[in-house]
């Protein structure tokens, strides 16, 4: 069950503050990295929302993001719509696709859910890959960034764009945390814990899960809109299943079921990638090793582990119950 603890608020402020400072005082290159991080972090929050809290480990989040980016681009570039309605339609497409996937797969679980989402994601990927009208594997260009001059902002300025990205990341976090603390989110955690009992208490769990996927799709769609605006070019590469796998990696690396962990995971992964690619062409291997180690170390992730330690440190007094051996385990589940 989700609680916006002080620790999480502090971690979020530190992470966002770091990104803002890094973008403000860094080079053009640093600003590009910050945008990359925000896109991945938004996507990871979106995946943590359904996987960490709803138990729906999706391998189609890359595709959801890609669909938003494609629909946004089709509307803007092919049909000449203004950017705001195009973006809204892109988000709507992501929400519909994601909600549809959630609805259809509501009765599957475990590896079958993973496979089903993989299939739906690859279906979308193949569709765009094969579509000549949409540029096939070459993708599409010609995207322009939002015109926010009425706010006095020029999004073509790398710094403004990066800071706006950080702002959107914050917004998505807030949306996710409000949803998770609402009655809906609480019940979502209940479904994750014991779906059968939740049904017996009168909750239509299939509808609930589909709605949760739709909410998650909205967040992933945000990442897609920013991604399209960032590179001003999109290709089917956005939708390929390994992108979704990488997002899952970020969630695990940061700490699944903590919501702020994925943000930290995204910072670590992107920074690591960029640092490593300076030294070696084989950074994928190192990422793979880190992933394996993260799972073998207990799968709590960097932030998740720190949270467990700090909680144990600040509450050292043993509770009245003589349950010492299971105490640490309870804590970790409490936080999840």
């Amino acid at each position: 069950m989700f609680y916006q603890t002080h620790l999480r608020s502090i971690a979020l402020i530190l992470a966002l503050g770091f990104l803002a400072i890094y973008a403000s005082f860094g080079s053009y290159f640093a600003r590009e990295i910050v945008v990359e991080i925000t896109i991945l972090a938004i996507l990871a929050i979106s995946l943590d929302f359904c996987a960490g809290f709803g138990g729906m480990v999706s391998l189609c989040h890359g595709a959801i993001m890609g669909i938003a980016a494609y629909v946004f681009t089709i509307m803007g570039v092919k049909l000449g719509w203004p950017s705001l309605p195009s973006a809204t339609l892109g988000l709507l497409a992501a929400v519909l696709f994601s909600g549809m996937v959630g609805w259809v797969t509501a009765r599957t679980s475990g590896i079958f859910f993973i496979m089903a989402t993989l299939a739906f994601g690859q279906m979308a990927y193949t569709f765009f890959f094969k579509s000549r009208w949409l540029g096939g594997d070459d993708g599409m260009g010609g995207i322009s960034r939002f015109d926010l001059s009425w706010l006095g902002l020029d999004l073509n300025d790398a710094l403004v764009f990066a800071l706006l990205g950080v702002g959107v990341l914050f917004l998505v976090y807030v949306v996710a945390s409000i949803l998770l603390r609402s009655g809906f989110g609480r019940v979502l955690c209940g479904i994750h814990s014991n779906e059968n009992r939740m049904q017996a208490m009168g909750v239509n769990t299939a509808k609930h899960k589909a709605l949760a996927m739709a909410c998650s799709g909205f967040m992933a769609g945000m990442a897609g809109i920013i991604a399209a605006q960032h590179t001003l070019y999109i290709s089917p590469e956005l939708l390929i299943w390994t992108v979704s796998g990488e997002v899952l990696l970020v969630v695990i690396l940061g700490g699944i079921g903590t919501l702020v962990g994925p943000v930290i995971g995204a910072i670590i992964l992107i920074m690591m990638k960029h640092e490593l690619s300076n030294y070696t062409d084989y950074w994928h291997m190192i990422v793979g090793v880190v992933l394996i180690l993260a799972v073998l170390a207990g799968g709590r992730g960097v932030y998740g582990q720190i949270e467990v330690w700090l909680e144990a440190f600040f509450k050292p007094q043993a509770p009245k119950e003589p349950k010492e051996p299971t105490e640490s385990k309870e804590k970790e589940q409490d936080l999840a």
Partner: peptide, 29 residues
């Protein structure tokens, strides 16, 4: 790895073997 991950649930298995794909890929390169 495999023996150790047997009871770890589908998500962890998917993740570890996903990591292995990366590692083997770069080893081949």
């Amino acid at each position: 790895l495999i023996d150790r991950m047997r009871g770890a649930g589908p998500m962890n298995q998917v993740l570890v073997t996903f990591g292995l794909i990366f590692v083997i890929l770069d080893l081949v390169r």
